[in-house]
Write a protein that binds this DNA or RNA. Structure first.
Lengths: 258, 258
DNA sequence: TTCCGTATGTTGGTATACCATCATATCAAG
DNA sequence: CTTGATATGATGGTATACCAACATACGGAA
């Protein structure tokens, strides 16, 4: 770990690949603002933020691990100003905590918190899928179909991070189709906080089977424009994930996952 | 506005009054960790964060207004490092946006976003009040009664910020009694983003009447341990607030409230 | 009068320097 | 062997310096 390096030199392509700009660019057909030159002022801070966030979510930095500022400076190749501003952002996101007298550490997650997160996801995601089932346009349905195909392909390879990305794409499509950008922001943030749990959950054998099955049930309900069925399937999906997560986390020490 | 000064000198008492530490100190009876000395490292950054956040929520800085870093340095009496880290935090909270080529501005709120926020609040708050109604202990009920009394007293004075604080205390009690700390964090943050709307909504005459009435209906339902009635009353409370807010915001220019 | 180029001042982005504090190690006294 | 005091190294908190880029104002030329 001491040799970990996350250099930012020549990461422009990487940044571009992260569709950082999806939030600002709408459908080119409808949005004349698409003509904007939009030379994106990719700042060091933004790059470092994405890097560090991904590193934490991917588990490169373990929960509870100290994030020594000067060490991060070396690893990322930027100054402390940048690192500290990034840490403030991640702190507000809940991914980093400030341990008293110690400085920043990767946030710990207790089961009673994870459970709340799953509950909130149920509340927000069931609303979103129901809305989507009520009025999904053909484009959305087609997109969901494509995402599910990707998921099926990838679920066989059992690459947790890839599956996670596909799952995110699935729900992102649902949320955004119903105009729930803010709710999606919240869910994204919450998912970041339980990312380790999600990876561990996916590693569970039966999860790679029933997870996609549940999502297909949601998809079918949306195709049939059946909000109630979609809600039920969504609730089942998250509830099951939460149950698996509880089995993984609950027996651990009283409040943390290391 | 140019003479605005938010000096931090000798604000220790103010900070203490903000119950910054409520999150770290639990019930002293149950929590032996309460014995900790806990010399709170009140950092300049934390003070500046609270100050600036409150200033934005209170409307001292208007939506869309530029937050020039060096000017804030003068107004708050701290260096740019502190200001910039605070701005990062507020940016992650959604209270501040980074305008391209311009720097930070107070976040604008469009009605289609405000509407989403009210919808999310309905999802989260109905869940919380239902849980509270299911298993509220006498202490919680007593606390709610006290808060409602405060509200009645203050609602006559028509001081929007005070009423807002009492309303927050009401819901905070409900959320925390059911162990929904994370949901309450989310709601708090969302409320910050629509704080102007909330103040304007409260200024509406009939709101000062029906708002407390709705909250009393929620309270009564909790007293009777009637989750369904509590849910309905809560939904009515938020829906009504949203309707008033829509009337205030919707006729405005296409996407912002200034 | 209009248009264009230059100069200037403001702003955010970045890096670095300094300081108080805390944790740890070392060592001496009991 | 244990306890306590001192020294030292590391860490976060804070302030400041420097720079590139942008916006604006001004002035001259067509």
């Amino acid at each position: 770990m001491s040799s970990l390096v996350l250099k930012l030199s020549s990461v422009y392509d990487w940044v571009m690949s992260q569709k950082l700009f999806a939030a600002t660019a709408d459908d080119p057909v409808q949005d004349p603002a698409m003509l904007r030159i939009d030379n994106p002022p990719v700042t060091l801070r933004e790059m470092a933020l994405e890097r560090l966030r991904n590193a934490i979510i991917a588990g490169i930095f373990r929960p509870g691990q100290r994030l020594v500022e000067r060490a991060l400076c070396d690893q990322l190749g930027v100054s402390r100003s940048v690192i500290r501003e990034v840490l403030r952002h991640l702190e507000a996101e809940g991914l980093v905590e400030m341990a008293p007298k110690q400085g920043p550490i990767v946030a710990l997650i207790a089961w009673h918190q994870a459970r709340q997160i799953y509950d909130i996801r149920i509340a927000l995601e069931t609303t979103a899928v129901a809305d989507c089932a009520r009025g999904a346009d053909p484009d959305t349905k087609e997109k969901l179909r494509t995402v599910l195909e990707d998921l099926d392909r990838n679920s066989r390879k059992n690459d947790a991070l890839t599956i996670l990305a596909a799952t995110n794409a699935f729900y992102e499509t649902i949320f955004l189709s119903g105009g729930h950008e803010i709710a999606w922001d919240i869910v994204k943030r919450l998912n970041g906080r339980i990312s380790r749990l999600r990876v561990m959950t996916l590693a569970t054998a039966n999860r790679t089977i029933s997870g996609p099955a549940n999502m297909r049930a949601i998809f079918d309900a949306i195709l049939r424009n059946d909000p109630d069925a979609a809600t039920a399937a969504c609730r089942a999906h998250i509830t099951e994930a939460a149950r698996i997560a509880e089995g993984l986390l609950s027996p651990e020490t009283p409040a943390t996952i290391a």
